[in-house]
Simulated scan of single mutants.
Amino acid sequence: MALSYKARRRWSLVILLIGLPVYIIVAVKAVSLLDRPSILVELLVYVGLGVLWAIPFKMVFRGIGQADPDAKDSAD
């Protein structure tokens, strides 16, 4: 089932305002459980986790910054 443009906008806001801060807290806690690895390892883990969170939500964020494709043009 495909989400409408408005539904994708709403879900993207929920993901960015609620989900991303929670994910950041979990990522920091996960790295802290590694007993403070070297800075290079820590950087690689953060970069990997930073990319990993966006993969499942790629379809939700696609096209959000563009105009609503279902909206009627008022320029006529």
Rank of each mutant, 00 (worst) to 15 (best):
I24N: 04
F61V: 00
R36L: 02
R8P: 00
V14H: 14
A54H: 08
V14K: 13
S4N: 08
M59L: 09
S38G: 15
V47K: 01
S74K: 14
P37M: 04
R36M: 02
L44S: 12
E42G: 11
L3T: 07
K6T: 13
P21G: 04
S12C: 04
Q66M: 11
P56V: 00
G19V: 04
A2E: 15
R62N: 07
L33V: 02
E42C: 09
D73R: 12
L40G: 08
V14L: 15
F57D: 12
G19P: 06
S4D: 11
S74E: 14
K58T: 05
P21Q: 06
M1W: 08
V22M: 11
Y23F: 08
K58P: 01
V45C: 07
V14R: 13
W11K: 15
L34A: 10
G50R: 05
I39G: 04
K72S: 06
A2M: 08
Y46V: 06
W53H: 09
V14N: 12
R10I: 10
G65H: 00
P21S: 05
F61A: 01
I15S: 05
P21L: 01
Y5P: 01
L44D: 09
Y23N: 04
S74I: 11
V41I: 11
V45P: 03
I64C: 01
P21I: 03
M1C: 07
R8F: 00
Y23Q: 05
S12Q: 02
L3C: 12
D68G: 05
D35S: 14
V51S: 10
M1T: 10
P37D: 07
V51E: 06
F57R: 09
Y23H: 07
L3A: 15
L40C: 02
P21W: 03
D68C: 03
E42D: 08
I24M: 07
Y23S: 03
V28M: 10
A54S: 13
R62I: 00
F57V: 04
V60H: 02
A71I: 03
S74D: 12
K6H: 09
A7M: 13
S74F: 09
A75M: 08
W53E: 05
A67P: 04
K58C: 01
A27T: 14
P56Y: 00
K6F: 08
